[in-house]
Amino acid sequence: MISRKTFLKQSVYALAGSAVVPGIADKFTDLIENPSITILYTNDTHSRIDPYPKNAREFAGLGGIAKRSSLVKKIRFEEKNVLLLDAGDVFQGTPWFDQYGGKVDFEMMSEMGYDAMAIGNHEFDLGLEGFADAAKSAEFSFLCANYSTWNTPMHPFVEHELIKEIDGYKVGIFGLGIQLEGIVDPKLHGRVHYRDPVLSAKRSVENFRNFHACDYIICLSHLGYEYDGNQIDDVSLAQEVSGIDLIIGGHTHTFLDNHVAVENPDGSETLITQMGHSGIRLGRIDLHLNKKSPRPLVTSQYYTIGGNS
């Protein structure tokens, strides 16, 4: 399994280090004046707190939240600007969830400094009160722009959008949830209602671009990567909505080794990525900002947690 790919930044350093020539100072200034933002992300971690057992039929020994944490700490030491995001379905999957109902997951994610996560369909598994109970332990945002949560126990915890300002560069982040009908028991989602994600996405993008002057827009999506039928997925979302720079996806447990570029109606591009499930991988996207160009240079890679890296 590929565990790590070289990324641009490292090679820039290597290059600078080997060449003792005049003009190096310019390169430093360049790096400092044109900083980068490192986006780290997971999806569908499904309470995989401990690594997969040695006798697992698949993924034996992989994953583990404490290993993910030490990797995140390492990257935080190396990079100044780090965003840590998740695309939903933290709930359900191991005895940790049966015992603690997601509280331990949210505590550890807060410890690691997660900024936000989307609401997955499994976040309803303990009902709205159950979610609210666990969400009290979370020190990060739950984002969903297309669920109406009004007058439900979920409401105080869910926001449509979040804006992160990094060195004057504004990153708008919003969340999208999957349809509830046929996926979540009505007894569990109660009065939380699903709204059209395309409409919600357009509204968020407009809000970010026109009212907040965001430079970069990220969608945390639990819609799923791609379906055969006409159900909305990340690919069709990108085809229908312009202005989203990056979709961090989930639900379909898809391992995308490289991000996928999809053309928007206005001819621009949306990148889509997804990191399988269970915290087996930590995804990483670096935005290399350049004041001379409106769009950052993007490099992506992933780490396999617990692999021979």
């Binding site: 944490s69 700490k73 030491f77």
Partner: peptide, 21 residues
């Protein structure tokens, strides 16, 4: 500041918290 990370070993601080649970 030295790197506090134990990677690829687990984060010892988090591992302790998990052990309690």
């Amino acid at each position: 500041e030295q790197p506090t990370s134990a990677y690829p070993e687990p984060d010892p601080q988090m591992a302790r918290q998990l052990d309690a649970y």
